[in-house]
Design a protein around this nucleic acid. Structure first.
Lengths: 225, 225
DNA sequence: CCAAAAGTGTTCCGTCTACACCCATGG
DNA sequence: CCATGGGTGTAGACGGAACACTTTTGG
């Protein structure tokens, strides 16, 4: 079915990470300037090569951990990119991975060390190679999945107010939605539980804190926002 | 951001094709027995290595053309597979591609030459390596997209009856649906046009033939079944 | 006392679903 | 003349969208 190995060429295989975070009511992506050739100085996603003793997913996890200091992040493969000249130096196939993190969890020292910063999704500059396409595709996927997968909670602390949840939702979709309708939908979802705790930072009156019941999701395994 | 090339390993990069067709009221996949080691004799998808002078998409198109003799097929990337030992011989990263073809268009001689055959999607045997995962993922994608992308027409001739269209739809989703409701939805879709032609093969009375207006889709670029 | 965010229901409209019978024709 | 697949409408249920005012309290 497939021809023999020896007749064929090998290529470098890399992963590139689109790391989304939510802060100041905006959806943001981690971007940095390349510190190596080719493309030194250009804005770029953070990535790395896939090692011989790790799978693609493991490589993406390792690279994300290097970058953020965090483990067990929400992470999904976006797509493989393999245009012939996507890397000007060598033939490199890159697998794009999308990750969602709670900005408050990040290790600020590591971000400085890696010279990356949070950039609002609608202020993304021209990026190295095909990285703009990667971000675009990741964002499209995110928008498609937000209503049927509980991914939104990865962008928030464990306890959150409904106003925060709605802000994230609006930031991802890029449109404002009705508060009463949104809350009606939340109430219809068993997995989003009201706690007895009150958040006093965001308002004078105080807002109820909610949490996502992950165990209930693992049992039901269907989610609807 | 990324380390230097020389410190890293290269891998073989391949494409594997999940080719769907529709025949005898069933959704089918092209499968064959591997004619090479490792895995000789095991059921497998058809695939090939990515050459140094072609992109991933080009490689998938070339491999599909080798297999079917057809060009410009509907084709979408499914995902990249990169478990360490997914190929027992060498480190091989494989990008799975899903294609949809009209079974009547195929070149039967080529299929025999490649020793592949059409297998019903719910009778798929255990396949080589991670190929069962590839098929499963492709099928999941197909089901998700069928209502928002005009992909179903790729499984039918240019002219088709509504009963045929409904059969394909049911075969993909794996459930029977109501004829009147289905036809109501079709009528609500401008891009599916009734022609003056009558098909006399499928029934004594004869059934109106319809076609999909591709140009209208390219202008509107939103599709709803 | 007032600014700022939290919280709360109802009505309307369009969409989806369930459901059964007549039609045309070739053999 | 009858078996086979083609073709058609309506009523009820349901879900999504629009819409505005009251509450609480820190400063």
């Amino acid at each position: 079915m497939t021809a023999f190995y020896a007749e064929h060429n090998k290529a470098f295989v890399a992963v590139d990470c689109i790391v989304f975070g939510f802060d100041e009511k905006k959806l943001k992506v981690l971007l940095g300037k390349r510190r190596m050739d080719p493309g030194r100085g250009e804005w770029s996603l953070y990535g790395g090569f896939v090692d011989e003793n790790e799978s693609l997913d493991e490589a993406a996890n390792r690279v994300l951990n290097e970058l953020t200091g965090l483990k067990h992040l929400y992470m999904k493969q976006v797509a493989a990119f393999g245009a012939i000249d996507r890397d000007p130096g060598e033939r490199v196939i890159s697998i794009a991975y999308c990750a969602l993190i709670n900005v408050k969890d990040y290790n600020e020292r590591l971000l400085k060390e890696h010279e990356v910063e949070w950039v609002e999704v609608d202020k993304i500059p021209t990026l190295y190679s095909d990285h703009n396409m990667m971000v675009k595709k990741a964002l499209t996927l995110l928008r498609k999945r937000i209503n049927s997968e509980p991914l939104i909670f990865n962008l928030l602390p464990k306890l959150f107010t409904l106003t925060q949840l709605q802000s994230v939702y609006e930031a991802i979709l890029g449109e404002v939605i009705d508060k009463r309708n949104f809350r009606k939908r939340i109430k219809a979802n068993d997995m989003i539980e009201k706690t007895e705790l009150i958040d006093k930072y965001s308002s004078k009156r105080g807002a109820a804190l909610y949490r996502f019941n992950k165990k209930m999701y693992q049992e039901e395994s269907s989610f609807k926002l």
